[in-house]
């Protein structure tokens, strides 16, 4: 068990290193940030001076080694735009992203879990048809379009909620709902199909042959087993949303990590891009580790084999 997770941890570190390295080299192809940072008509001397100051005159391998050495200590350099440590700029945006991600996941699990369970238990009913149609639509609808439609309806037409921004719970409703639609649609579909598989299992027949109450059969024999793949999906979705939902954050002017990174790409703020991507990779890998751990807790057969 411990060795299993030590191995996973090693894999995780290699993955983060790989992502960070790729991003380092890709950002170098974005173009020269110096021209963007200086006012129009700056002299060649000024440009050279800034290039040297940012360390961009060094050969690329040296830049890379310096970058790696500093990154190991959590130092990604000073943000070109803000003139502060890049990692600080990114971390500041985390609370907003975490708030949005966790609200969306919680809503999605609640709605999607209930809908999926109803669809599976009421096989062939109108309820199943409605749930499955909505879920299919929910998965297929582009997030930006849904976001804009929600803004038009609830903010512009009805005036119930703000169009965007950050601070009060009212600001959170529409962006969280937008993301929750996709999350709950995915969970509803997976939970339903996984329950339908489990309902065919012999051990469910055994549970019924034991005369157990329907609620016991459902909770301990059907849902308990059907949940295993769903947990994996929740973990993956959480990892993705914690990395910042670029589109939603942009549509709703939500000051999260996703939007920050897009801005950093536009302004060629290399240190912020690198710090942001490194953090996202770390979060993603960490959620995956947690999912593996949960998986082993939910399915005793894994523990036995590892």
């Amino acid at each position: 068990m411990t060795r299993y997770f030590a191995g996973k941890l090693g894999e995780a570190l290699v993955a983060i290193w790989g992502v960070v390295t790729i991003v380092f080299f890709v950002t170098r192809f974005l173009g020269d940030p110096v021209a963007l940072l200086l006012p129009v008509g700056a002299s060649p001397e000024q440009m050279q001076a800034l290039t040297a100051e940012l360390g961009l005159d060094q050969p690329i391998w040296r830049q890379y080694l310096t970058f790696l050495a500093q990154a190991l200590t959590g130092n990604f350099g000073q943000s070109f735009q803000f003139g502060r440590p890049a990692i600080g700029v990114v971390l500041e945006r985390m609370p907003a992203t975490i708030q949005l991600a966790l609200t969306a996941i919680a809503l999605g699990v609640l709605i999607g879990g209930t809908a999926g369970a109803i669809a599976a238990m009421r096989r062939g009913s109108v309820a199943e048809f409605v749930v499955m149609t909505l879920a299919l639509l929910g998965q297929a609808t582009p997030v930006f379009w849904l976001g804009i439609m929600l803004i038009l309806l609830f903010a512009v037409d009805l005036g119930w909620l703000p169009t965007g921004g950050y601070g009060s719970p009212a600001n959170l409703v529409l962006p969280a709902l937008t993301l929750a639609v996709f999350v709950s649609a995915s969970i509803a579909r997976l939970f339903r199909s996984s329950m339908l598989d489990v309902l065919k299992e012999d051990y469910v027949r055994t549970a019924r042959a034991k005369g157990l109450m329907p609620a016991t059969v459902f909770t301990w024999h059907v849902a308990r087993n059907a949940l295993i793949p769903v947990v994996t999906m929740i973990g993956i979705l959480t990892g993705e949303l914690l990395g910042g939902s670029v589109v939603t954050e942009t549509v709703f002017a939500w000051p999260g990590v996703g939007r920050l990174i897009v801005q950093a790409i536009e302004t060629k703020d290399f240190p912020v891009i690198q710090a942001g991507v490194a953090l996202i990779a770390a979060i993603y890998v960490a959620t995956n580790l947690i999912v593996d751990l949960l998986y082993a807790l939910l399915d005793p057969r894994i523990k036995g084999s590892a």
């Binding site: 299992e201 051990y203 087993n225 399915d299």
Partner: peptide
């Protein structure tokens, strides 16, 4: 009433206990 009888007055033993027992309990 049937639930009371199943497992109580009528016991079942199924083929293939690998699939007939719940693997996670």
């Amino acid at each position: 009433d049937l639930r009371d009888i199943r497992g109580g007055q009528i016991g079942f033993v199924f083929q293939d206990p690998m699939t007939s027992l719940n693997p996670v309990l």
